Computed example of a mutant assay.
Amino acid sequence: MERKQQIRAELKEKRNLLTKEQREEYSGKICEQIWKYIVSEEAEVIYCYYPLGSEVNVLPLAEKALAEGKKVAFPRTNGDMMEFYPVMSLAGFQKGAFGIMEPIGEVPITEDSPMVIVPGLGFDKSKNRIGYGKGFYDRYFARFPACRKIAATYETQIVDNIPTDDFDTPMDLIITEREVLE
Rank of each mutant, 00 (worst) to 15 (best):
E102L: 04
R178T: 06
K71R: 14
T19E: 12
P114T: 08
Y154R: 00
P86F: 10
V39E: 15
K14G: 10
Q33F: 07
K20M: 05
A146P: 01
C147T: 11
A91D: 14
K134H: 10
I34V: 15
K71A: 14
K12V: 01
D112G: 03
W35Y: 14
R23Q: 11
T169M: 09
R178D: 11
K95F: 05
R23D: 13
R178N: 13
R3T: 13
A151S: 07
P145Q: 09
T153S: 14
T156D: 04
E155W: 01
L17R: 13
T156S: 04
Y49Q: 01
K20I: 12
R139E: 05
K127T: 02
M171L: 14
P145H: 14
G105C: 11
P51K: 08
E41M: 07
A73W: 03
T19N: 14
Q5G: 02
P103M: 13
M82D: 14
S40M: 03
A67Q: 14
Y137S: 05
K36I: 06
F93H: 10
R139F: 08
G122F: 00
R178K: 15
L59E: 15
K36E: 13
T153M: 09
G99W: 12
R8H: 11
G69T: 04
P75G: 09
I175C: 01
P108N: 09
D160P: 03
E32N: 03
M1W: 09
F123L: 03
E41Y: 11
V56T: 06
R3W: 13
D112C: 01
D160L: 09
G131N: 01
T176C: 04
I34R: 06
I46M: 10
A97I: 04
Y47D: 13
E63R: 15
E155H: 02
S54Q: 05
R129H: 15
E155C: 01
T156P: 00
S89R: 15
M1R: 07
I34N: 03
A142W: 01
E10P: 03
I158P: 00
N78W: 05
K14A: 08
F98Y: 15
P86D: 12
